[in-house]
């Protein structure tokens, strides 16, 4: 069913990761993304994978849930992996060839790295942000981080408000879509068979009511906000003030160290750092 989509869903909890300050989580996510894109050799990827697994374990979110978030992109992953395997040209003898199809060692490496990179990116950022941070906390964090831009006239608060409203209504819209789909199925609508044109046409009975109700909802929300004298961020105070705690800085230190480790690992040949040397040691012994 459509409501099984977990990407962008918050799971309430009280793990270490849940308790981190949302601003810090955003900064950590940027560091994490940097790690993912810097990593380009086996040792770095092993380090990164271990790091991500530790994050998942710390968050106390079940592995099944985490993997379900990756499911929608599996097709794309497989497709890109195929392209990488067959289209990467290498030097020397190919591992396998069949007419014009050739597989080089480097192609396999690239395919695996690419797939791993995307999976780790999705799992890591959803653990840090969407799974463990409520949408309200997330937008609060974004607003706080972007607030310096207010000085040059960027309406940061309005953007944050728009974002939190949009996030807030995703589940509502999903539910609504489900409801309308069921209503139209009850009238014999068929959403899952026929050619492309037929399927696109079959969406009209779904999209028209969905848009009608979304506009109506937006209108009602605007009126409700006006009724409560909403006037943006002028003189607005917060119920929960964000404060950094010791654990925020500790996690930051861990992340920075991990990033530095991966950068060193990838830029210093023959692994001057522990992990690389350790791996080489392992492989030579075998």
């Amino acid at each position: 069913m459509i409501s099984d989509i977990t990407l962008g869903q918050f799971f309430p909890g009280s793990s270490v990761i849940h308790k981190l300050d949302p601003r810090m989580k955003l900064i950590l996510s940027v560091l994490f993304i940097a790690m993912v894109f810097v990593a380009n050799n086996t040792a770095a990827f092993i380090l990164l994978t271990v790091f991500t697994v530790v994050l998942v374990l710390l968050s106390k979110i079940s592995l099944a849930t985490v993997l379900r978030g990756v499911k929608p992109i599996i097709l794309i992953l497989v497709f890109t992996a195929f392209l990488n395997v067959f289209l990467t040209g290498g030097e020397g003898e190919p591992l396998w060839s069949f007419y014009f199809l050739k597989i080089y060692e480097i192609g396999i490496y690239r395919a695996v790295f690419m797939a791993l990179r995307v999976i780790i990116l999705i799992v890591g950022t959803s653990i840090l942000l969407t799974y463990t941070t409520s949408p309200i906390a997330l937008t609060d964090g974004i607003e706080a981080l972007l607030s310096p831009l207010k000085r040059i006239g960027v309406p940061v608060h309005s953007f944050a408000m728009m974002m939190s409203i949009a996030l807030r209504f995703i589940p509502t819209l999903v539910e609504e879509t489900d409801k309308i789909m069921n209503a139209q199925k009850s009238r014999g609508a068929d959403f899952s068979s026929g050619g492309l044109v037929k399927r696109a046409k079959a969406l009209i009975p779904l999209l028209v009511p969905l848009f009608v109700s979304a506009f109506k909802r937006a209108d009602e929300l605007a009126v409700a906000m006006e009724c409560r004298c909403y006037r943006g961020d002028k003189n607005r105070t917060k119920l929960v003030k964000l404060t950094y705690r010791a654990r925020d800085f500790l996690t930051l230190i861990v992340f920075v160290l991990a990033l530095v480790g991966i950068i060193l690992e990838c830029n210093i040949p023959s692994g001057a750092l522990g992990t690389g040397a350790f791996l080489e040691f392992l492989f030579y012994r075998v």
Binding site: A183, R187, P209, V212
Partner: peptide, 21 residues
Amino acid sequence: ISKIRYRVGLVMQYPEYQLFD
């Protein structure tokens, strides 16, 4: 199963949201 849906006609709660044509 779609044939069953023609034989058991279901009017859902607040059915007016399903109008589209």
